[in-house]
Design a protein around this nucleic acid. Structure first.
Lengths: 118, 118
DNA sequence: AGGCGTTATATTCTGTTAAATATAACGACC
DNA sequence: GGTCGTTATATTTAACAGAATATAACGCCT
Protein backbone atom coordinates (compact mmCIF):
# COMPACT_ATOMS: atom_id res chain seq x y z
CA UNK A 1 0.00 0.00 0.00
CA UNK A 2 1.41 3.41 -0.96
CA UNK A 3 2.18 5.94 1.69
CA UNK A 4 -0.24 8.71 2.42
CA UNK A 5 0.12 11.19 -0.37
CA UNK A 6 -1.18 14.65 -1.02
CA UNK A 7 -1.71 15.87 -4.50
CA UNK A 8 -2.71 19.29 -5.69
CA UNK A 9 -4.49 19.40 -8.98
CA UNK A 10 -4.80 22.65 -10.80
CA UNK A 11 -7.24 22.55 -13.64
CA UNK A 12 -7.94 25.54 -15.79
CA UNK A 13 -11.43 25.63 -17.17
CA UNK A 14 -12.85 27.43 -20.16
CA UNK A 15 -16.61 27.49 -19.87
CA UNK A 16 -17.40 23.92 -18.93
CA UNK A 17 -14.44 22.31 -20.68
CA UNK A 18 -11.16 21.54 -18.97
CA UNK A 19 -8.67 23.56 -20.95
CA UNK A 20 -5.68 21.99 -19.24
CA UNK A 21 -4.82 19.88 -16.22
CA UNK A 22 -2.24 17.38 -15.08
CA UNK A 23 -3.13 14.75 -17.68
CA UNK A 24 -3.15 17.10 -20.63
CA UNK A 25 0.14 18.64 -19.55
CA UNK A 26 1.75 15.22 -19.41
CA UNK A 27 0.35 14.43 -22.82
CA UNK A 28 1.83 17.61 -24.27
CA UNK A 29 5.22 16.60 -22.96
CA UNK A 30 4.87 13.10 -24.38
CA UNK A 31 4.10 14.55 -27.79
CA UNK A 32 7.11 16.81 -27.50
CA UNK A 33 9.24 13.76 -26.86
CA UNK A 34 7.76 11.26 -29.28
CA UNK A 35 6.70 13.39 -32.23
CA UNK A 36 3.31 11.74 -32.69
CA UNK A 37 -0.05 11.44 -30.98
CA UNK A 38 -0.12 7.68 -31.27
CA UNK A 39 3.37 7.18 -29.87
CA UNK A 40 2.60 9.58 -27.03
CA UNK A 41 -0.60 7.69 -26.28
CA UNK A 42 1.24 4.37 -26.30
CA UNK A 43 3.90 5.72 -23.95
CA UNK A 44 1.20 6.83 -21.53
CA UNK A 45 -0.81 3.64 -21.94
CA UNK A 46 -3.73 5.62 -23.28
CA UNK A 47 -5.91 4.98 -26.29
CA UNK A 48 -5.17 7.00 -29.41
CA UNK A 49 -8.71 8.21 -29.45
CA UNK A 50 -8.53 9.55 -25.93
CA UNK A 51 -5.26 11.34 -26.62
CA UNK A 52 -6.65 12.83 -29.81
CA UNK A 53 -9.74 14.06 -27.97
CA UNK A 54 -7.66 15.74 -25.27
CA UNK A 55 -5.52 17.51 -27.84
CA UNK A 56 -8.58 18.56 -29.78
CA UNK A 57 -10.04 20.11 -26.64
CA UNK A 58 -6.83 21.99 -25.96
CA UNK A 59 -6.57 23.28 -29.50
CA UNK A 60 -10.11 24.61 -29.20
CA UNK A 61 -9.71 26.14 -25.76
CA UNK A 62 -6.53 28.13 -26.36
CA UNK A 63 -6.04 31.13 -28.58
CA UNK A 64 -3.70 29.21 -30.84
CA UNK A 65 -3.18 25.47 -31.42
CA UNK A 66 -0.86 23.81 -28.93
CA UNK A 67 -0.16 20.90 -31.26
CA UNK A 68 0.40 20.80 -35.03
CA UNK A 69 -0.43 17.61 -36.84
CA UNK A 70 0.48 16.22 -40.25
CA UNK A 71 -1.34 13.34 -41.89
CA UNK A 72 0.53 11.20 -44.37
CA UNK A 73 4.11 11.62 -45.44
CA UNK A 74 7.31 10.40 -43.83
CA UNK A 75 6.49 7.89 -41.15
CA UNK A 76 2.80 8.31 -41.89
CA UNK A 77 2.60 11.75 -40.40
CA UNK A 78 3.12 13.03 -36.91
CA UNK A 79 2.42 15.73 -34.39
CA UNK A 80 4.50 18.44 -32.82
CA UNK A 81 4.00 20.80 -29.95
CA UNK A 82 3.86 24.39 -31.21
CA UNK A 83 5.93 27.21 -29.70
CA UNK A 84 2.67 28.51 -28.28
CA UNK A 85 2.02 25.07 -26.82
CA UNK A 86 5.42 25.14 -25.18
CA UNK A 87 4.54 28.45 -23.61
CA UNK A 88 1.24 27.12 -22.31
CA UNK A 89 2.98 24.10 -20.86
CA UNK A 90 5.75 26.10 -19.22
CA UNK A 91 3.37 28.50 -17.59
CA UNK A 92 1.04 25.77 -16.44
CA UNK A 93 3.94 23.93 -14.81
CA UNK A 94 4.99 27.13 -13.12
CA UNK A 95 1.56 27.61 -11.62
CA UNK A 96 1.51 23.99 -10.51
CA UNK A 97 4.88 24.40 -8.79
CA UNK A 98 3.84 27.63 -7.09
CA UNK A 99 0.75 26.02 -5.62
CA UNK A 100 2.69 22.97 -4.48
CA UNK A 101 5.36 25.09 -2.82
CA UNK A 102 2.81 27.27 -1.07
CA UNK A 103 1.09 24.35 0.64
CA UNK A 104 3.93 21.85 0.99
CA UNK A 105 4.50 22.47 4.66
CA UNK A 106 0.88 22.46 5.74
CA UNK A 107 0.11 19.42 3.63
CA UNK A 108 2.86 17.55 5.38
CA UNK A 109 1.40 18.45 8.75
CA UNK A 110 -2.09 17.62 7.57
CA UNK A 111 -1.18 14.13 6.47
CA UNK A 112 1.02 13.46 9.48
CA UNK A 113 -1.36 14.64 12.14
CA UNK A 114 -4.79 14.06 10.70
CA UNK A 115 -4.69 11.14 8.29
CA UNK A 116 -4.70 7.57 9.41
CA UNK A 117 -1.36 5.94 8.73
CA UNK A 118 -1.13 3.18 6.22
CA UNK B 1 -21.82 31.28 -21.74
CA UNK B 2 -19.75 31.66 -18.56
CA UNK B 3 -16.53 33.59 -18.58
CA UNK B 4 -13.22 31.81 -18.62
CA UNK B 5 -12.61 30.55 -15.13
CA UNK B 6 -9.70 28.97 -13.33
CA UNK B 7 -10.20 26.62 -10.46
CA UNK B 8 -7.67 25.03 -8.21
CA UNK B 9 -8.67 21.78 -6.64
CA UNK B 10 -6.70 20.40 -3.77
CA UNK B 11 -7.45 16.82 -3.03
CA UNK B 12 -5.72 14.94 -0.29
CA UNK B 13 -5.32 11.27 -1.00
CA UNK B 14 -4.79 8.35 1.35
CA UNK B 15 -3.62 5.39 -0.66
CA UNK B 16 -5.98 5.41 -3.61
CA UNK B 17 -8.95 6.96 -1.81
CA UNK B 18 -9.68 10.65 -1.79
CA UNK B 19 -9.59 11.52 1.88
CA UNK B 20 -10.90 15.01 1.33
CA UNK B 21 -11.55 17.46 -1.48
CA UNK B 22 -13.82 20.36 -2.35
CA UNK B 23 -17.00 18.28 -2.39
CA UNK B 24 -16.37 16.53 0.91
CA UNK B 25 -15.46 19.81 2.57
CA UNK B 26 -18.71 21.37 1.43
CA UNK B 27 -20.58 18.35 2.71
CA UNK B 28 -18.97 18.66 6.12
CA UNK B 29 -20.11 22.25 6.32
CA UNK B 30 -23.62 21.29 5.27
CA UNK B 31 -23.78 18.72 8.04
CA UNK B 32 -22.52 21.29 10.50
CA UNK B 33 -25.38 23.55 9.47
CA UNK B 34 -28.21 21.08 9.08
CA UNK B 35 -27.50 18.48 11.75
CA UNK B 36 -28.20 15.46 9.58
CA UNK B 37 -26.78 13.62 6.62
CA UNK B 38 -30.05 13.54 4.76
CA UNK B 39 -30.76 17.25 5.22
CA UNK B 40 -27.21 18.08 4.14
CA UNK B 41 -27.62 15.91 1.06
CA UNK B 42 -30.92 17.57 0.22
CA UNK B 43 -29.41 21.02 0.60
CA UNK B 44 -26.63 20.07 -1.81
CA UNK B 45 -28.99 18.30 -4.20
CA UNK B 46 -27.18 15.05 -3.63
CA UNK B 47 -28.54 11.59 -2.92
CA UNK B 48 -28.46 10.42 0.67
CA UNK B 49 -26.49 7.38 -0.39
CA UNK B 50 -23.79 9.43 -2.02
CA UNK B 51 -23.45 11.69 0.99
CA UNK B 52 -23.28 8.73 3.32
CA UNK B 53 -20.58 7.12 1.18
CA UNK B 54 -18.47 10.27 1.23
CA UNK B 55 -18.72 10.57 4.98
CA UNK B 56 -17.92 6.90 5.41
CA UNK B 57 -14.76 7.36 3.34
CA UNK B 58 -13.73 10.34 5.43
CA UNK B 59 -14.33 8.55 8.68
CA UNK B 60 -12.13 5.71 7.46
CA UNK B 61 -9.35 7.89 6.10
CA UNK B 62 -8.81 10.11 9.11
CA UNK B 63 -7.43 9.17 12.48
CA UNK B 64 -10.71 9.96 14.14
CA UNK B 65 -14.27 10.21 12.83
CA UNK B 66 -15.16 13.59 11.35
CA UNK B 67 -18.89 13.00 11.76
CA UNK B 68 -20.83 11.39 14.58
CA UNK B 69 -24.18 9.83 13.76
CA UNK B 70 -27.14 8.77 15.82
CA UNK B 71 -29.89 6.47 14.58
CA UNK B 72 -33.34 6.72 16.07
CA UNK B 73 -34.47 9.08 18.76
CA UNK B 74 -35.66 12.65 18.52
CA UNK B 75 -36.29 13.53 14.91
CA UNK B 76 -35.22 10.07 13.87
CA UNK B 77 -31.57 10.63 14.61
CA UNK B 78 -29.02 12.92 13.10
CA UNK B 79 -25.41 13.63 12.44
CA UNK B 80 -22.93 16.12 13.80
CA UNK B 81 -19.47 17.18 12.82
CA UNK B 82 -16.97 16.24 15.52
CA UNK B 83 -14.43 18.69 16.97
CA UNK B 84 -11.81 16.72 15.10
CA UNK B 85 -13.85 17.11 11.92
CA UNK B 86 -13.97 20.84 12.49
CA UNK B 87 -10.20 20.86 12.75
CA UNK B 88 -9.85 18.88 9.53
CA UNK B 89 -12.19 21.24 7.76
CA UNK B 90 -10.48 24.37 9.04
CA UNK B 91 -7.05 23.19 8.03
CA UNK B 92 -8.22 21.99 4.64
CA UNK B 93 -9.78 25.37 3.92
CA UNK B 94 -6.57 27.05 4.96
CA UNK B 95 -4.54 24.98 2.51
CA UNK B 96 -7.07 25.68 -0.21
CA UNK B 97 -6.82 29.40 0.40
CA UNK B 98 -3.03 29.37 0.46
CA UNK B 99 -2.85 27.63 -2.90
CA UNK B 100 -5.40 29.96 -4.42
CA UNK B 101 -3.57 33.03 -3.17
CA UNK B 102 -0.23 31.77 -4.42
CA UNK B 103 -1.39 31.35 -8.01
CA UNK B 104 -4.06 34.01 -8.29
CA UNK B 105 -1.95 36.44 -10.22
CA UNK B 106 -0.46 33.99 -12.69
CA UNK B 107 -3.80 32.31 -13.25
CA UNK B 108 -5.24 35.65 -14.20
CA UNK B 109 -2.48 36.21 -16.75
CA UNK B 110 -2.80 32.65 -18.00
CA UNK B 111 -6.48 32.96 -18.74
CA UNK B 112 -6.19 36.46 -20.18
CA UNK B 113 -3.30 35.85 -22.48
CA UNK B 114 -3.55 32.21 -23.42
CA UNK B 115 -7.17 31.12 -23.32
CA UNK B 116 -9.60 31.86 -26.09
CA UNK B 117 -12.22 34.35 -25.01
CA UNK B 118 -15.80 33.30 -24.72
C1' DA C 1 -47.71 -0.02 20.90
C1' DG C 2 -47.29 2.55 16.83
C1' DG C 3 -45.58 6.52 14.17
C1' DC C 4 -41.83 9.19 12.68
C1' DG C 5 -37.53 10.61 10.37
C1' DT C 6 -33.22 9.21 10.38
C1' DT C 7 -29.10 6.08 9.70
C1' DA C 8 -27.39 2.11 7.33
C1' DT C 9 -27.23 -1.04 3.63
C1' DA C 10 -28.35 -3.96 -0.43
C1' DT C 11 -30.05 -4.28 -5.00
C1' DT C 12 -31.53 -2.88 -9.34
C1' DC C 13 -31.68 0.34 -13.05
C1' DT C 14 -29.77 3.77 -15.99
C1' DG C 15 -26.96 6.93 -18.17
C1' DT C 16 -22.52 8.51 -19.13
C1' DT C 17 -17.93 7.72 -19.98
C1' DA C 18 -14.17 5.13 -21.68
C1' DA C 19 -12.53 1.25 -24.44
C1' DA C 20 -12.49 -1.49 -28.52
C1' DT C 21 -12.99 -1.91 -33.21
C1' DA C 22 -13.26 -0.38 -37.88
C1' DT C 23 -12.22 2.48 -41.70
C1' DA C 24 -11.13 6.34 -44.61
C1' DA C 25 -7.75 9.80 -46.02
C1' DC C 26 -3.26 11.39 -46.36
C1' DG C 27 1.40 11.98 -48.39
C1' DA C 28 6.38 10.74 -48.46
C1' DC C 29 9.12 7.04 -49.93
C1' DC C 30 10.64 2.97 -52.40
C1' DG D 1 1.35 2.60 -57.84
C1' DG D 2 1.63 0.11 -53.62
C1' DT D 3 3.25 0.26 -48.78
C1' DC D 4 3.46 2.29 -44.42
C1' DG D 5 2.25 4.53 -40.09
C1' DT D 6 -0.13 8.18 -38.98
C1' DT D 7 -4.22 11.42 -38.38
C1' DA D 8 -9.15 11.70 -38.18
C1' DT D 9 -13.61 9.93 -37.34
C1' DA D 10 -17.63 6.86 -36.74
C1' DT D 11 -19.68 3.01 -34.55
C1' DT D 12 -20.20 -0.47 -31.45
C1' DT D 13 -19.30 -2.53 -26.99
C1' DA D 14 -18.13 -2.70 -22.24
C1' DA D 15 -17.28 -0.77 -17.75
C1' DC D 16 -18.21 2.17 -14.26
C1' DA D 17 -20.65 5.65 -11.56
C1' DG D 18 -24.58 7.52 -9.96
C1' DA D 19 -29.60 7.43 -9.32
C1' DA D 20 -33.47 5.13 -7.89
C1' DT D 21 -35.67 1.96 -5.13
C1' DA D 22 -36.34 -0.94 -1.22
C1' DT D 23 -35.89 -2.27 3.49
C1' DA D 24 -34.27 -3.03 8.11
C1' DA D 25 -32.98 -1.06 12.53
C1' DC D 26 -33.08 2.43 15.79
C1' DG D 27 -34.91 5.19 19.66
C1' DC D 28 -37.66 9.17 21.10
C1' DC D 29 -42.32 10.76 21.42
C1' DT D 30 -47.31 10.78 21.69
Amino acid sequence: MPKALAKTRIRVLLGSAFAIGPGKADLLQAIEQTGSISAAARSMDMSYRRAWLLIDTMNQCFRQPVVDTATGGKGGGGAQITPFGRLVLRRYRLIEAQAAAAIAHDIKLFTRELLRSR
